[in-house]
Nucleic acid binder design. Structure first.
Lengths: 212, 212
DNA sequence: GTCTATAGGACGATAGAC
DNA sequence: GTCTATCGTCCTATAGAC
């Protein structure tokens, strides 16, 4: 299965020049999505925003869904990076989980377009490629490892690192994020009614898996 | 501001005949949304599904957004009805809250199209009319009243019926619903990883506002 | 890697006959 | 309340010159 993300994986490979052009295109795509909705991105609009003609875009992306996939993939990478930056320097275990989850929640709030694309299913024909999903799998694996550490250190009850525990934690986490995106996407982290209560997420998760 | 929902509020008013035709049109619209995504409904597709010509549809709805609004409004009414049916016969207070919330969660899972339309923002140009939103306001008012009863009966700590309490409860509730819709919309209530853990929602809400 | 030209549709909506 | 005919617009994508 060839890459869906970019056109011409044949000769020009990836020069820094090409890379930064692609980034610029994706930046514009996100701006458009913020304007007209995540499902409102079209090649024509994207070309207009870049001051080029629509056919020129096909040198960079083979289809409009490939653009969606590239935005999705970049979003997943950024979300994973936010998670890792958030837990950097924290002791492994519960503290790292709390810091990392909070960081990804904050990333979602500051990147509502990408968050909608990642966490909802708003674009009719679009299914993210496996490659684009890979960072999400990494994040879950790392999260699960930290939950295991928290359990082994007696910070959480056994089961917090099970599939059930992840379900509970994801529900709590995405409950806040999803309500924020749906009801007050313009609000900043400190001002949002839902985000202001994010601290409860981790408190309630601990309440669900209380240490002995 | 005139009704956005249906065309011609002038002469034919609302006969049972007309009413059932409108219902049938909305049923088809929901089927299409299930097929091609909530944002994929068009007048052309809807007409095709009804075996009529697109212009004929404009005798029933003045625009495609009016169709969206009508589906939205019907969904809000159905959700409110599910809430009320769920708490019927339960004693006022915490037990009613639990029964009612569970019923609306189950309604959302069995009506994923309407739920996406109600609880996310998936259609670019669409903003629900105030009339269509009204049932949601009623539901919140009734929920808040039952939370107040629960507090006054010592089933929940004071504050459970405050704006903050509603935020926490909504996050917990829509966290499960939203994760289900995004990740396993095909799964039945009893089989879904998230819905199977719905009971924790109310447990955790009680944990957040524990009775004295 | 940019362009012009263009094929080929889909779409929202209106006019007007029946 | 259904239809045909139609306007004007937007869209994806390709061919091929430069």
């Amino acid at each position: 299965m060839g890459s869906v993300t970019t056109a011409g994986s044949r000769s020009p490979r990836r020069t820094p020049r090409r890379e930064s052009t692609l980034e610029a295109i994706l930046d514009r795509a996100v701006e458009i999505m913020a304007d007209v909705g995540v499902a409102g991105l079209t090649m024509t609009r994207l070309a207009r925003a870049l001051s080029i003609q629509p056919p020129s875009l096909y040198k960079w992306f083979p289809s409009v869904l490939a653009v969606h996939d590239a935005v999705f993939a970049r979003g997943q990478r950024a979300n994973l990076a936010a998670w890792r930056a958030g837990l950097e320097g924290r002791p492994a275990g519960l503290e790292a989980v709390v810091a990392g989850m909070t960081a990804t929640a904050q990333w979602a709030v500051t990147h509502p377009v990408e968050a909608q694309l990642l966490f909802w299913r708003p674009v009719p024909g679009f299914r993210p490629s496996a490659a684009a999903m890979a960072p999400a799998d990494e994040l879950v694996a790392e999260l699960r490892e930290h939950l295991g550490t928290a359990v082994s250190r007696g910070q959480l009850a056994p089961g917090a690192d099970s599939a059930d525990g992840l379900v509970v934690l994801a529900s709590l986490h995405f409950g806040v994020v999803s309500q924020h995106l749906a009801n007050e996407p313009e609000a900043a982290w400190a001002d949002g009614a839902y985000t202001r209560s994010y601290g409860r997420v981790t408190e309630l998760f601990v309440a669900a898996y209380p240490p002995a």
